[in-house]
Design a protein around this nucleic acid. Sequence first.
DNA 1: TGTACATCAGTGAACGCGCGTTCACTGATGTAC
DNA 2: TGTACATCAGTGAACGCGCGTTCACTGATGTAC
Lengths: 205, 205
Amino acid sequence: MAKQGYHHGNLRQALVDAALRLIEEQGPQGFSLSDAARAAGVTPAAVYRHFNGRDDLIAECARQGFEIFGDLLEHAYAGGKPTALKAFEATGRAYLAFARKFPGYYMSMFESGVNYNASPELARASERARAVLTRAAEALSQHIPENRRPPASMFANHIWAMSHGIVELFARGKPGVNAPFPPEDLLEAGIGIYLRGLGLVPPDN
Amino acid sequence: MAKQGYHHGNLRQALVDAALRLIEEQGPQGFSLSDAARAAGVTPAAVYRHFNGRDDLIAECARQGFEIFGDLLEHAYAGGKPTALKAFEATGRAYLAFARKFPGYYMSMFESGVNYNASPELARASERARAVLTRAAEALSQHIPENRRPPASMFANHIWAMSHGIVELFARGKPGVNAPFPPEDLLEAGIGIYLRGLGLVPPDN
DNA sequence: TGTACATCAGTGAACGCGCGTTCACTGATGTAC
DNA sequence: TGTACATCAGTGAACGCGCGTTCACTGATGTAC
């Protein structure tokens, strides 16, 4: 976009952006390298100046997604402030917010079937995002009496699974599925009930 | 399989079976009508004797899946016996059991992007399966004091979302993701904590 | 039991298409002098 | 400031491939007489 003419200026990122838009519209399998090139106003062959082919392009989408995702979760967690509980809840909300705001990234990360070990950078980025969730869970679990404290990674995974399930089932404009509640409310309530089950929230609302 | 030779005998079901096996192995987007025909030992054109093309074949896979899924959930729910709580837990377990035992069906139902309104039969089958989950939730919700009883469809959706999330994130042999717990245990624990949060299970284990 | 015939499930060749990828090339850009 | 040149990002034509779908056909099966 920076420059016009024969040389594109920033084709690499333009291709990523085009891919994200296409993935968002047609699903991770529904987009093609040629589509992305066309959307960026360029010959398919030009893609090979910047990526090792289709899979490499998707992997870069996912990598960028995980970076943003990690940043958002980190920011929401805010080092566990003001309380471990509030920080944890905020992190859960950030999960859904990310999926809603960046569906292309989300799909490239979780629905494209991308191999997280495709590149060291991707592996690192996805690992970091996961680590934020686990850290939030760990801080929270300190408030549960030790004798009935479940492993932190377990309930990080519970929250992750519920969030992901809500995104997949209810936060997509899937034909034929009419969600009776806004996904945000559904997740908020679900996390609330779950945390009450852990004894981290007073039993009576 | 019933007969050999020029006439296949039961090509329709053979194609469905082949499609399921392929979906299981390569994902819902990774299989082609030609693949399925080849696997059934038949020309691609023969498929059109039985289906209106690729999408119709997938829709039939999903329909059969939802029938089995509905039966399994129904059976697990067992009319709410012995208690609404135990029946509900059994239903949740049945969800995961289905996903594990019939990955091809599961993927055709939830990952293929099939339109649930593609045929009235598919719409009905998917509706029935959902209804079982909601009914189980409704029976259970009778045991919650009315003033702090969440809508039954809400917590049916919570359980559904968590189950689906666990299937997608941890019950697949996804490269690069090592689940720290068996999915069954993860779901069992998650449902347990959640139900405790609803006040349906004594607070101390 | 044997024969004629209707049915229709599957064949095989053909179609147009878009895909991912390769290759020798061209021409815009930036740098050295 | 002007010129020669190296760099390298993007071109455009070509490839082989497998796809979904169509069509006129063929030959196995089952039925009527």
